[in-house]
């Protein structure tokens, strides 16, 4: 993958540093604005994270451990996490201290009243809006499940076995053509879009980058393993029904079956995964280490909060008719 195009001073700093052969990016002080949804800061963070996944053409693999970039990453992450904790505090503290955590996670998702992107995609979206949706999600879905794989060595026993079981399904159950990321690439191609990893990095919004980065932040910091698994539980539990609706919308506008196939797969897979993630993974983790409870709930609430932000952003773009041609 090529390095992305800069979107402001922070991403420029990161990208210029990676273009240079000299390791050791200089110190960079962030401005005072919120980082959630900020396309410049989120692109900078995404670029630093990508060094841990696939890297960039022409950039030395060893830059993954560039101390200057790691220092900037920690500064962005610190702000990102604080902002997320602040906006989710009410939701997290509203969950009773006692009770079945797996069920509490499912109830948290069921009670969510964020804007229904799926209902719009099912009934009203044009073919171009559905393609726009596929593009916006492509940055995260083409590395679907990879961020959670970083958590596997940090778990043990029943929670580890359950995460491995879930990931094995996400990774196609031994069939490379059934890798969920590959199914997403097939959907993009069938919709006439570019299925290359990172193809739309310069196109997607700051909120879409934020959605992608939150799972990397949770997955790459062992301290946040509870949040990573809580996010996974909420993500899976808010996927099965919406996937059915989105598949219906894709079929309504006449896109080829391979596009809807990705979403049909998630109707069934995520009906399983939500229970595995909420009870077998999160329930077990918290039973063994009650100190992880608040972080699990934080991760779930962060998922719901950012999904709602993204839903509102895309619905506004599509319903005000101001969508830029692509």
């Amino acid at each position: 993958m090529q390095l992305p195009h800069e979107r402001g001073p922070v991403s420029r700093h990161v990208i210029e540093s990676l273009r240079s052969d000299r390791p050791g990016a200089a110190f960079f002080a962030l401005g005072p604005d919120d980082v959630i949804g900020d396309e410049d800061v989120q692109l900078a963070l995404w670029t630093i994270y990508e060094l841990h996944y696939r890297g960039f053409h022409g950039v030395d693999d060893d830059r993954e451990w560039d101390l200057g970039l790691l220092t900037l990453r920690r500064e962005i992450e610190s702000r990102f996490e604080s902002e997320l904790r602040a906006v989710t505090r009410e939701l997290v503290t509203g969950v009773p201290q006692h009770g079945d955590l797996g069920q509490q996670l499912l109830d948290l998702v069921a009670a969510d009243d964020g804007p229904s992107l799926a209902a719009f995609l099912q009934r009203r979206a044009s073919i171009e809006q559905l393609r726009d949706f596929l593009r916006e999600r492509s940055v995260q879905q083409l590395k679907e499940s990879d961020p959670q794989s970083f958590v596997l060595p940090r778990l043990d026993g029943r929670a580890k076995a359950a995460l491995a079981e879930l990931q094995y399904d996400e990774y196609g159950g031994g069939r490379p053509e059934r890798l969920h990321a590959t199914l997403y690439a097939d959907a993009l191609s069938a919709a006439g879009l570019d299925a290359t990893y990172g193809a739309y990095i310069d196109h997607v919004t700051g909120v879409s980058l934020t959605l992608c980065n939150v799972v990397s932040m949770f997955g790459l910091n062992r301290r946040l393993r509870g949040a990573s698994m809580g996010h996974l539980a909420a993500f899976e539990a808010s996927s099965s029904v919406p996937s059915r609706k989105i598949a219906g919308g894709l079929e309504r506008v006449g896109l080829p079956p391979a596009v809807a196939a990705y979403f049909h797969e998630h109707v069934e897979a995520d009906a399983v995964h939500e229970h595995v993630a909420s009870s077998d993974i999160c329930g077990t983790m918290v039973a063994e280490d009650p100190g992880l409870r608040d972080d699990v709930l934080f991760g779930a609430a962060a998922c719901l909060h950012l999904d709602a932000l993204s839903g509102a952003e895309l619905l506004e773009r599509w319903t005000t008719g101001l969508e830029k041609a692509s």
């Binding site: 069921a110 079981e165 399904d169 029904v241 109707v267 069934e268 995520d270 009906a271 399983v272």
Partner: peptide, 26 residues
């Protein structure tokens, strides 16, 4: 069965029986 674990419909309302499609939530 093609998954390591499967969810079998218990509410009788799934449109993909025997598999659960989360219709019980509705």
């Amino acid at each position: 069965v093609t998954r390591p674990v499967v969810a079998v419909c218990a509410c009788g309302k799934s449109s993909r029986k025997p598999w659960c499609d989360s219709t019980h939530k509705s």
